[in-house]
Nucleic acid binder design. Structure first.
Lengths: 183, 183
DNA sequence: CCCGTGTGAGACAAAAGCGTCTCACGTGGT
DNA sequence: ACCACGTGAGACGCTTTTGTCTCACACGGG
C-alpha cells in the first residue's frame, strides 16, 4: 500500500537520466504512482532532485564503505569500488549532469566528501606506485564518474550486459590508471 | 552585428550540457543574445536541439576525417582523434545525454555512421593486436564518448587545463585499451 | 466487521514557459 | 547623410506544467 520512497527515487533517476525534461506526471507514471502521491512525498521538482541527490550521496558513500577503499592495493580497491557502485550508477549518471546542484550556496557538502575520498584513493595508488602520476587524481576522479555514467547508459541501452558492467569499467579505468611496465 | 549561428549553438551546448532544463531565455542570455533573436534563428527548442545535433555530427565527422583514423597504428589514430574532437566536446557531452534523439523514427543516421567509423577503428586496433580484445568495440566507443564528455566538463569547470584535455583522455583511454604485456 | 490511513483520479487556479508580434535603436552599407 | 537590416527589449495570448484540493476507493489493523 504505502509507497516505497527509495523505489520511487530509483524510477525517477532511471527516467530523468534519459529525459531530463520529463514532467512530474511522467515521473509519477514511470514510478507507477499517481501525480498526487508523488507530490505528497516530494513537494516539487526541486525537492525531488534534492532527494535524489541525498540518496545518491548515501549510496555512493555506502559503496565507498563497502569497498573498504583504504585497504589493500589501490587497484583492487578501485575494482571493489566499481562493483559496489553499480546500484548507484543511474543516480550518478543523472546527477552528474545536473549542474543546478553545484551552483549556488546551498551546495551539498556530501559531494566534496565523496570527491575527497575518491581523490585520496587515487593519490594513495600513486604514492604506492600502483597508479601513474601523470594523470591527476582529480581527473581520474572525474573519469571515474564519467565511466560509471557511460556504463550505466550502455547497460540500460543493451549495448553492454549488466554482468559486464564492473569488468568493463574497472578494466578500462585501471588499465589507464595503472602504471604499465613499458613506457 | 549579425549573430554567429555556430557560436550561439556552442554556447547553447555548453549551457544545456550542464542544465538540460534551461529555458530558451537562459539559452539566449548564455549566448549573449535576446530571446527574440534566438527565436529568429531557431523556431523552437526542438529545432535548436536538431541544429545542435546536426552541428555535432558535422564536427565529429570532420574530426574523424581530420584525424585520418584509417591511417597508421590504431592507438596513434585514437590520439589524433581525441585531439581533433576537442572543439566538438561540449556538443557531444550534451547530445549523448539527450535520448530524445534516439527514440522515435526520425533518428538521424549520422550517429550510426559515427558509431560505425569509431567501432571500426577500435576493431582494427584489436585485429592489429594493439588493443585488448576483452573490451568490446561498442564499449570502447561508449567510453570514448563518456571520457570526451567528462573531459569537456572538467575543463569547463577548471579542474583540468584545456591544454591537458587531449593528453588526459587519450592516455586514460589508450592505457586501458592497449594490451599491456603483463596480464 | 468497521474505521483509519494512504492512494488514484480528476478538477482547479496559479505560474512558468513558449511563440509571436511590435517598436525603438544602433550599426553598416549605399 | 540616409536607409535598410538585424537586433534587444518588452508585451501579449496561449499552452503546458505545477501545486493544491476534493472525493471515492482499496487495503489492513483493531
Amino acid at each position: 500500500m504505502s509507497v516505497d520512497r527509495t523505489q520511487v527515487l530509483r524510477a525517477a533517476a532511471a527516467l530523468l537520466s534519459r529525459k531530463a525534461t520529463a514532467t512530474m506526471d511522467e515521473v509519477a507514471r514511470a514510478a507507477g504512482i499517481g501525480r498526487a502521491t508523488l507530490h505528497r512525498h516530494f513537494a516539487g521538482r526541486d525537492a525531488l532532485v534534492r532527494a535524489l541527490e541525498q540518496l545518491c550521496i548515501e549510496e555512493a558513500e555506502a559503496a565507498l564503505d563497502a569497498a573498504r577503499i583504504e585497504e589493500g592495493p589501490a587497484d583492487e580497491a578501485v575494482r571493489r569500488l566499481v562493483t559496489a557502485s553499480q546500484p548507484a550508477a543511474s543516480l550518478l549518471a543523472f546527477l552528474v549532469t545536473e549542474n543546478q546542484l553545484f551552483e549556488g550556496d546551498g551546495q551539498n557538502e556530501g559531494w566534496s566528501r565523496l570527491d575527497a575520498r575518491l581523490v585520496a584513493l587515487f593519490r594513495r595508488g600513486q604514492e604506492e606506485g600502483t597508479f601513474r602520476i601523470d594523470l591527476s587524481p582529480a581527473w581520474l576522479c572525474e573519469a571515474f564518474y564519467g565511466l560509471i555514467g557511460s556504463g550505466a547508459w550502455a547497460v540500460a541501452d543493451g549495448r553492454v550486459a549488466a554482468n559486464d558492467f564492473s569488468y568493463m569499467i574497472a578494466e578500462l579505468l585501471l588499465g589507464g590508471a595503472r602504471r604499465s611496465v613499458e613506457k
